[in-house]
Design a protein around this nucleic acid. Structure first.
Lengths: 198, 198
DNA sequence: CCTGGAACTAGACGTTGACTAGTTTCTAGA
DNA sequence: TCTAGAAACTAGTCAACGTCTAGTTCCAGG
């Protein structure tokens, strides 16, 4: 009859997808393993086969978040390859757009875990984001936008600035239009300062 | 006999203080109203007289966090009044030091609340932080560090950058020494770019 | 075929936030 | 000084959650 097969076959993916939706629509406090299980039509213990505990689920979400964010930034940057300034703006804009669309997820990605830092999976996913930023900066270097200064540090500074702008938006300290102006200011300053040292 | 007076007399303050300690030592997930009540020697319902629910307690913590952070920054900035560059560095350094000392609290302060933003109390406390940053920037303007550009936007950019650096530290993406180098880079760029437009 | 493990069920436990009704204490006004 | 009435607190209850355990069903490799 297979009306309800014993093995869901797809549980892990379904849980993650639904969890992302809950995170987006009702925030992290509303994210309950039991509710996810109910929605997926499995028993309340089933998620345990795929995630050791609630934090493991959150880690998986954060990991996916980093991958998605990196992809969206790379995608946005690749659409304006001709001009480095435009590329930077596009990347930063994509970052903030992601933050506006998924505030709770971004929070989760940059949450401070007490004691030990992020799990290995989350860490490597976050390095993928950083690597994407580094790629963009390296393209700028090759295009002659920067002098022989330490590109790694510049990448870090860019990452921090963009993450800071995103944090101001998600915490409602500034509005989305304000954030766009901020991005403009940041990129302008970033480029003018970096090449003013010639 | 007043061995245990009915009125604690000090509950609200004690709860907040202990809550800050728990937040610092064991993170936000370990913060339980019932445990705080137990530690304070009152019934599990007692905190309700001072905080409508758990979120109200968290809001109060965030509010105090903003006030303390603003104070610490102002204090640090006032110690290097002679030179604007030093002042900026001192302020940014104090910000990051706060982040390292109280990562979970800073997270709480900039958490994205779904739907409605921060409460009125939190909002006004956070504006106090922004006002402190604006003061520092205005002192720089008077000292001639910047041209007639929009100081408000510069203040916002500074705030975002510093918050971004803090986020990278609390989420263990960079180490504390790295953050100090980052601050240096950021301030250098900030000043060189802002006055390069003359 | 069969056996071991992965996926899942079902029940239980302790903890928590929230609500309610009732009690004690403080305080402000007549 | 006496007395409401508000504020602070107690005690009990409830549903929900995360986690754990023991047992069941299914699948895949030997």
């Amino acid at each position: 009859m297979s009306h309800r097969p014993f093995h869901h076959g797809n549980l892990r993916a379904v849980l993650l997808e639904r969890a992302e939706a809950v995170l987006r629509e009702r925030g992290i406090d509303a994210l309950s393993l039991r509710e996810l299980a109910r929605e997926a039509g499995v028993s309340h213990g089933a998620p345990r086969s795929h995630f050791a505990d609630r934090n493991a689920l959150l880690d998986a979400l954060a990991e996916r978040g980093f991958v998605r964010l990196a992809d969206e930034i790379r995608e946005a940057a690749s659409r304006a390859r001709e001009d480095h300034a435009r590329t930077l703006r596009a990347a930063a804009s994509a970052y903030v757009r992601f933050a506006v669309r998924e505030p709770a997820l971004l929070d989760l990605m940059f949450t401070a875990k007490v004691e030990d830092g992020p799990s290995e999976a989350v860490r490597s996913a976050s390095e993928r984001l950083f690597a994407t930023m580094a790629e963009i900066m390296n393209a700028g270097v090759e295009a002659g936008a920067y002098d022989a200064c330490d590109v790694g540090r510049l990448t870090l500074l860019l990452s921090a600035t963009v993450q800071g702008i995103a944090a101001l938006v998600t915490s409602r300290r500034i509005t989305t239009p304000q954030s766009e102006a901020l991005i403009d200011d940041a990129i302008t300053l970033f480029l003018s300062g970096a090449s003013a040292e010639r």
